[in-house]
Structure formats: structure tokens, C-alpha cells
Design a binder for these strands. Structure first.
Length: 472
DNA sequence: ATGTAC
């Protein structure tokens, strides 16, 4: 098997090398030359069927992205039909989210995409959507809560070392919830992110600094939470604490938080700028308006987005530091990951902008956190670097019922019974965040075993959330 | 998700 056989099939550019190395591996596995050529023709004919894994995944991803480039018009004109993309757990995903992803894959700047099993409808790109674009960033491809993220601290304490009442009072004292909520001046905590010069580099950032300073270390509203629970490590993991953490059960803190009012205003501002930039863009795609990287607006968004990403992680840092300090301990290990952000990433040999809107980065070996609901387990996972999923996984269980539908259909007593069955103590929390409003996390995890491996499990015990429209 | 209000 050599390069000539490959080029004769019509492979071009970086695809030649990828096809050749796959062919060599198949040869080593004992296949005949004609069988391998048949396989390569099949990959060529239908690359989307091979992106999920196996020897041909990288080649398939490369073919898909180069075809995207060949088809890309240089204007706001949409493709007549969406580029193909991988879907994990299709039977768990509603048609509305599929339609939104189809629309995203018709953008002229789109090159590759994937839909995670927790996907549901959002603004523009669906939550659970992963989209790779070329030289452009889509504010609503990242979402309103820029840098929304997860953090886990495993503490040097046994689960029984903290009783429910103490956990409740620590959460009440050291966390702040609610839209618009920040800290009073005397309770504020400092963080290096507030001292970055970036804040002075854009009028918008200068304007938002005071709000950011007041709200740092707070949790906000909606699906955000801070909780104490039991973390179970199945076996030592080389990626976790350098492989030093013993298997067993620990008291742990898990939080879900974002970039608060600061990130929301950055998102709102640049979404407006992007939509004005493409007045001729099809109305149905308006919320997917993009900013070219290299343009002043595009670079400004990129800078503000990344600052909001660091700010969101700083929120977690302060929350965990305050709780650990109150307990008089230092965490044994900490893990954090953003799940609403865009990254520059190599896809099929090219640098693309990978938007993850409610999707966990899952490069090979990278740790991430996938929470369930206020009463269901969350998982510490290790990425498998699946090329077809653009190295991503779900960011949670995903909504099954919209907020209004949950308030309409779920009964308070059923939610209370669900919590009681699992021994959960809840502070705040609205009916719209009820466990029954979410897909079963076990189902969602089962659909992505080719995207992540499970490293540990977190079972919530005392949970704080914002108070919804209707309390539980 | 945010906390203002085509």
C-alpha cells in the first residue's frame, strides 16, 4: 500500500496522509489491499458515518471539513442544505434542537459540528451543540452565560464529617444567589482576574468592571448551584491529582456558575454588533450572526469572551476557597471546566473555532464534570478525544421540559418526594429546576461512552440554588 | 442566564 493507491482514489491534501496511515493500520490488521481500498471508498462516499470512532475517524473529519471549505461562499448566503454532523443519543433529542443545528450547519462559515445527547433548544445554536467555524466566532454559539462552568473540590474529610445542618449553614453564609445579586463592599473578596490589564482595553470592559467586582464569587440564578456531597473515586486516576488520590469516598463541593451580569452584557452587546453586521442574513439564522476574527469587533469579542471565561472560573475559585477555609481544610484535588466557550482547535489539520454551547471539552485524557440534577449524581469524566464529536461531551443531563412546561406540569409534592427518597436537603430551588424537568443522567451518560470514560461519581446531599418563581 | 424594559 502506498501513496499512489491513495491519490488514485482522489484523496487530496492532508487527507492523503491520514488515509495512508489508516490503510497501514488496516494492513497490519490483516486486510487485503482490495478490501482496504473498498473501505477507503466507503469513507469517501459517506465520511459522516465514520466520524464517531475507529481507524477512519480522523480521515472522515478531515474530509468533512475540507468539503465544507470547498462549498463555502464568501457572503452571508446560507448553504442550500446543512453539512453532515454527528448526533449522540438522537432518540433523546427533540426536533427543535435538530432544526437549530441544521440551520447552524448551513452557515457559510461552518465546517463541522456535533450534537451531544443532552441537547435541547436554545437561542441560535442549541444547548449541547458543538460547532466548528473558520475565521469567525458566533456570540450566540457561545451563549448568554459566557464561560459557564463546573468545579469540584475533593476535601480531606469523610462524607460523615459534615452534618446536614452544618452544611446548610456554611452554604447560607458563604454563597450568594439571585439575579443582580453581588457582595456588599465589606464582604468582597479579591482575585487576580480583577487585576488584569484587559479590563482597560475596551470601553465596554471598563464600563462593566464595577459590576464584575461586586459580583465576583457569587452564583447567580437559573440552573446554577453549590452543593456538598459524596465523591466516590472508583480507582486511582493518573489525571487526577497526579494519580495520588486514593480510591474511596470523600466529602466534596460541586459548583455550577457562570460570568454573571458581566458575561451576559458582553454577550448581549456583541450579539447586537454581529446582527447589525449581516443585515442580509436569512432571518431564521439571525441569532447565529458571526464576527470575523481579524476584524476589530471579532477580536474585541474574543478578548472579552476569554476574560469572561476566566472570570467565571474565578467565581468558582472564590466559592470553593471560602467553604474550604470555613471548614479549616485544603482541598486534596480540584477539577474545573468551562462548557460555554469557543476555542481555537485543530480539526482535520486546520485551525478552526470550536464553539461549545453546553458541551464539555473532552480531549483525550482531559478531566471534565457532567452534573445530573439537584438530586441526581454527577460524574467526573476523562475525555477520549473523539474526533467526530470535535472532542466534546454533554454538559449535563439536559432539559426534558422547558421552564414553563415544568411549572405547569410538575407537582411540588412529587418533587419533594423525589428529594426525600434520595436524602437531599435543598436550599432555594424552583420547580423549574426539578429533577423531573431533566433527562435521566444515566441515559445521557450511556449515549456517550465513546466520548468519555467515567472516573468518579458525585452524589449531592445539601444543595443550594436560587429561589425560582415557584419554590419546591 | 441576566435583571431591564421594541
Amino acid at each position: 500500500m502506498n501513496g499512489k493507491h491513495i491519490t488514485k482514489l482522489g484523496f487530496q491534501g492532508p487527507a492523503i496522509g491520514l488515509a495512508l496511515s489508516a490503510a497501514v493500520r488496516r494492513e497490519a490488521a490483516g486486510l487485503s489491499r482490495s478490501d482496504i481500498l473498498d473501505e477507503l471508498r466507503a469513507v469517501q462516499a459517506e465520511p459522516q458515518a465514520y466520524t464517531a470512532g475507529g481507524v477512519y475517524a480522523e480521515l472522515a473529519a478531515q474530509l468533512l471539513s475540507s468539503r465544507g471549505a470547498a462549498q463555502a461562499p464568501a457572503s452571508a448566503e446560507l448553504r442550500p442544505s446543512p453539512l453532515p454532523y454527528g448526533v449522540w443519543g438522537a432518540e433523546l433529542i427533540d426536533q427543535g434542537a435538530r432544526d437549530q443545528m441544521d440551520m447552524a450547519m448551513r452557515l457559510p462559515i461552518s465546517r463541522a459540528g456535533a450534537l451531544m445527547p443532552d441537547a435541547h433548544v436554545g437561542y441560535g445554536l442549541p444547548i449541547g451543540g458543538v460547532l466548528a467555524t473558520e475565521d469567525a466566532v458566533i456570540p450566540y454559539g457561545v451563549g448568554v452565560d459566557i464561560g459557564c462552568s463546573m468545579m469540584l473540590s475533593v476535601l480531606p474529610l469523610a462524607p460523615g464529617d459534615l452534618n446536614t445542618e452544618e452544611a446548610r449553614s456554611l452554604l447560607l453564609r458563604h454563597t450568594r444567589f439571585g439575579a443582580g445579586v453581588g457582595f456588599e463592599k465589606r464582604d468582597r473578596h479579591d482575585h487576580p482576574v480583577l487585576h488584569e490589564s484587559t479590563w482597560r482595553e475596551q470601553p465596554l470592559l471598563r464600563h462593566l468592571f464595577d459590576k464584575a467586582e461586586a459580583q465576583i464569587g457569587s452564583s447567580g440564578s437559573g440552573n446554577h448551584f453549590v452543593e456538598f456531597g459524596t465523591f466516590t473515586l472508583t480507582e486511582r486516576d493518573p489525571e487526577l491529582g497526579g494519580g495520588e488520590l486514593d480510591a474511596g469516598e470523600y466529602l466534596a463541593v460541586l459548583s455550577h456558575s457562570g460570568s454573571r451580569g458581566f458575561g451576559a452584557q458582553v454577550a448581549g452587546h456583541f450579539t447586537g454588533v454581529a446582527q447589525k453586521r449581516w443585515p442580509a442574513l436569512d432571518k431564521a439564522a439571525q441569532k447565529l450572526a458571526w464576527l470575523p476574527l481579524g476584524s476589530e469587533e471579532g477580536e474585541s469579542y474574543w478578548q472579552a469572551m476569554n476574560l469572561a471565561g476566566r472570570y467565571a472560573l474565578a467565581n468558582h475559585d472564590l466559592i470553593h476557597a471560602r467553604l474550604a477555609r470555613a471548614l479549616g481544610v485544603r482541598p486534596l484535588v480540584q477539577v474545573q471546566n468551562s462548557h460555554n466557550l469557543a476555542w481555537k482547535q485543530q480539526v482535520g489539520g486546520r485551525e478552526l473555532i470550536v464553539h461549545r454551547k453546553g458541551a464539555t471539552p473532552a480531549e483525550a485524557g482531559r478531566l471534565g464534570l457532567i452534573p445530573g440534577s439537584m438530586a441526581d449524581p454527577g460524574y467526573l469524566v476523562r475525555g477520549r478525544g473523539n474526533a467526530g464529536a470535535l472532542q466534546s461531551a454533554s454538559h449535563g443531563a439536559g432539559r426534558q421540559l422547558g421552564r414553563k412546561a415544568a411549572e405547569r406540569t410538575l407537582a411540588k409534592k412529587d418533587v419533594q418526594a423525589y428529594l426525600k427518597d434520595r436524602g437531599i436537603t435543598l436550599i432555594g430551588g424552583g420547580i423549574d429546576e426539578a429533577p423531573q424537568a431533566y433527562k435521566r443522567i444515566e441515559d445521557v451518560i450511556a449515549r456517550q461512552r465513546d466520548l468519555v470514560d467515567l472516573v468518579g461519581e458525585f452524589r449531592p446531599r445539601v444543595v443550594r440554588m436560587d429561589t425560582g418563581h415557584e419554590d419546591v
